[in-house]
């Protein structure tokens, strides 16, 4: 009997492996192998064309003394710290609104999601048009209220805030996720709260936020990682073909500097070391976030 059960279990296991095998193969070829190879390249001097030559930890030593690495890290950190909270708060607010929209929700859901379909390169170009200090739409609107808008695209102080605001263009995806989470909050909880005399703010604070904290936490993790890897929009606007000679230090994100080292200067070894450093930083930040989440995130499943 037990032998048969274990045979069945072995069969199940095999089937399970078979089902996940496409993912496993993909992971091995497209994630694990490049990761290991990056680790190897980071210990070499490699210019794409000549064979890599082993240089030990030289690349990592150079990383530490490279002022631009520090600048790029600082830029990226500041961008992430600004963009993630703004994005989460705005998407939560929009999701709350959509949740109240009744029948029109479907339409608005699509409308909010549509901008997400814009290719990132187009968003970079859009940034230059909308945030043009002289004739951009943003400053024109600010002008209606008597505000003299800044030079978003050239003044180093305003370059990152401009990029943060532009990143809100794709807030639609987060809104959809949060909306789904809101829909899952049991109505009884609100009914009970109302009976207890709780107002909108108390309900949001004590029911909505805790009950959607799982989704919020997911977005915090995903958005943080995306912000730390941010590349296309800033590259297109400040370093790409349209601006082949004008670049702005304030927009030099880590991934952009990595790209320059790898594909413009052909320092693949150095760029690999940079990639590994970013990997470690992202791992560390995510680990801290997961640890902190234990205190703030509520999982209904854990109670049962």
């Amino acid at each position: 009997m037990s032998r048969r059960r274990s045979a069945v279990r072995a069969g199940d296991t095999r089937a399970a492996w078979l089902f996940i095998s496409p993912w496993v193969v993909g992971f091995l070829i497209f994630t694990l192998y490049p990761l290991i190879y990056t680790g190897y390249l980071s210990l070499t001097d490699y210019d794409v064309i000549n064979d890599p030559s082993f240089v030990g930890l030289d690349n990592f030593r150079a990383l530490v003394s490279d002022d631009k690495v520090m600048l790029a890290l600082r830029n990226t950190a500041v961008f992430a710290l600004m963009s993630v909270p703004v994005k989460i708060v705005l998407s939560f607010f929009l999701a709350l609104l959509l949740n109240k929209a009744g029948r029109a929700t479907g339409f608005f859901r699509t409308a909010f999601f549509l901008p997400k379909m814009t290719p990132p390169v187009a968003i970079g170009i859009l940034l230059l048009l909308m945030f043009n200090g002289q004739s951009g739409l943003v400053n024109e609107v600010l002008g209606w209220f008597g505000i003299n808008g800044p030079a978003w695209t050239t003044d180093p102080t305003w370059v990152k805030p401009g990029l943060v605001l532009m990143s809100l263009w794709t807030v639609g995806a987060s809104v959809i996720i949060l909306l789904a989470a809101l829909r899952n909050v049991p109505q009884e909880l609100y009914d009970a709260a109302r009976v207890d005399g709780a107002g909108w703010w108390a309900q949001t604070r004590h029911i909505t936020v805790p009950m959607t904290s799982g989704a919020i936490f997911f977005l915090v993790i995903v958005d943080t990682i995306a912000a730390l890897q941010s590349f296309t929009e800033a590259y297109t606007a400040y370093f790409g073909a349209g601006n082949s000679t004008y670049g702005n230090d304030a927009a030099l994100f880590y991934a952009i500097y990595l790209f320059q080292q790898a594909f413009q200067f052909l320092h693949m070894g150095y760029a690999s070391a940079m990639a590994l450093l970013l990997f470690v930083i992202i791992m560390a930040i995510t680990a801290v976030q997961v640890r902190l989440s234990k205190r703030f995130v509520f999982y209904a499943g854990e109670q049962s």
């Binding site: 043009n132 002289q134 951009g136 030079a151 695209t153 050239t154 004008y246």
Partner: peptide, 12 residues
């Protein structure tokens, strides 16, 4: 008035 102004105008 600074490069920012000239570039923004040139870009437009």
């Amino acid at each position: 008035g600074g490069f920012g102004k000239v570039k923004a105008y040139r870009d437009s």
